[in-house]
Design a protein around this nucleic acid. Sequence first.
DNA 1: CTGAAAGCGCTTACAG
DNA 2: CTGAAAGCGCTTACAG
Lengths: 342, 342
Amino acid sequence: MTIRQRLPERKSKVTVKDVARAAKVSESTVSRILRDKGPIADDTRDKVMEVVRAMGYVPNRIAGSLASLNSNLVGVIVPSLSNIVFPEVLQGIHAGLEANDHMQAVISISDYDPDKEEAMIRGLLSWKPAAVLTSGFEHTEATRRMLEFSDVRVVEMMDIDSEPIDIAVGMSHCAAGKETARHLLARGYRRFGYVGHNWDKDYRARLRHLGFTQVLAEAGLSIAAKAVAPGASSVGAGRAMTAQLLGGTTPVEVIVYSNDDMAVGGVFHLMGAGLSIPGHVAVFGFNGLDIGKEMPQPLSTIRSNRFLIGKKSIDAVLEDPQRPDQRARIDTGFEIFTGATA
Amino acid sequence: MTIRQRLPERKSKVTVKDVARAAKVSESTVSRILRDKGPIADDTRDKVMEVVRAMGYVPNRIAGSLASLNSNLVGVIVPSLSNIVFPEVLQGIHAGLEANDHMQAVISISDYDPDKEEAMIRGLLSWKPAAVLTSGFEHTEATRRMLEFSDVRVVEMMDIDSEPIDIAVGMSHCAAGKETARHLLARGYRRFGYVGHNWDKDYRARLRHLGFTQVLAEAGLSIAAKAVAPGASSVGAGRAMTAQLLGGTTPVEVIVYSNDDMAVGGVFHLMGAGLSIPGHVAVFGFNGLDIGKEMPQPLSTIRSNRFLIGKKSIDAVLEDPQRPDQRARIDTGFEIFTGATA
DNA sequence: CTGAAAGCGCTTACAG
DNA sequence: CTGAAAGCGCTTACAG
């Protein structure tokens, strides 16, 4: 005969009605006390709070939201979590939310797929969120319509190179690409290589490349050799593509990478092959990740402010819950980090 | 006189009642059609769906949840997003949720603070989630009570070395520490260094250390030199602590790190100082991160299965929404990755 | 196959 | 300072 392990009795749910009855007051009084609203006699408050604690009452926010017609939920959509960039944006959002202790983030991952984004936004809107924060400007027509017509605040994060639906918070990736070109030209480089990843999944990488080649063109130059990985960016892809590019016949002085992950892979390839940086070839990234700073030679790159993007995004919508008639772009900036690899 | 930019008219919210009226059916019929439940005549369905589309109806899930008494929300608490480990767990959760298209994750970050976790779980429970997934076993008494007494399913992720509230999904960190010691002993190492980070914030790192030293002790050995960073783990901290440890007077043959981030920092320090690995000193990490695999010398480490932890956690609770009387531990395992640094 | 009615657990004017 | 009542937008037995 076996003895079944017993968990303690589960709490049967207690409602405001139960609290009201036990405290001998009305439901509205309980509600007011719990939300700290309206004038309440001190004894009443004490009596009710004691009952609340004794009964272990947990308010049902679903009912609360329905009754008050606002949910304190913020919908967030990021394209991916496999690169540390978006978790950093989420940290910024989290920091902004923390100040505002009744807000909760509902997070979805779109895998850079506008159709998935559309489905997720549809789902999110059904929760009547206080705001929707999504990434970039690449939406389906239906998504754009839903967002335009709903009156929730919407932030398009990361990028400010297009006209936002409501607010855009981020940096100009086109300008970052241009700045990279100017910086490297100023340092005397003339023969450029480019190592990238799939643009279909990362429109901002394409914008940076665009800005970069524009400035080169103004100087009468262009990219001499190129290697582009078919999939997402990663250290491994950067490493493999660097090997491929350097295995070609066109010599280059510096390789510009689509981002730091790719660039770190490039550095690893060069180290492994015993080639000096920047002597044999220089390396330039994008993002300014921690890892780049700690390498034996700090990675030359552009620092984007991911945490700040998240923080400013949530601040912007919390500051003014009503969507204004005017669209806004908030620039979180970027800066060249000289480093030692270019 | 300035012309103000005009956004298109915002959609005034349309409810089931509006849809029902327009389609000349009852609200219950609309509800059934939308949820694909119960027998419906095809013409009725077509007529209603057309109205739904024409009016751009978006169901209010808050009302739906209140009426049906279940929310399709899953509460998730991770201690941090600054290390790629937890985003990978979230990816696993996301993958599991995707199969189940009406579930949404509400994610909070506890900063490894049990008091914050308590507040977050209280907030989460007020949304009547289908399940709560949190990390580790370190909770306040109040958290434990709330979770025990509520009847939501709860998963404690990452670790299976303690008795769970409901289900634990993860690996034995103590066993991983032991395995590390056995592996390194088998490879002939006898003089061990340890480089770690703050344990108060990372109980699992402590468990690994515990298992590690236990096996050493059985072999009549112990850790010869130690350097522990005061804060969270990071590449920078690993680099600095490695410099500190090697600057001491006690020679070591191999350094065991609290995790891969720290170990990568160690490798960077050694590379920068021109010291050979494992000739001058060997390096062993924990986690099996991508970055480690791509370094010029692949990092010797133990692979933990973060994605799998997230995936199995959500699968476990989705499989059986009722909390059983029996507690379960699901082992996601780990494996030595020999690598080239130890 | 469809509809009328009650109810989910709160909040919010309104009245006193 | 407090309470009775209506209502938020759905879903769910129940009846037909």
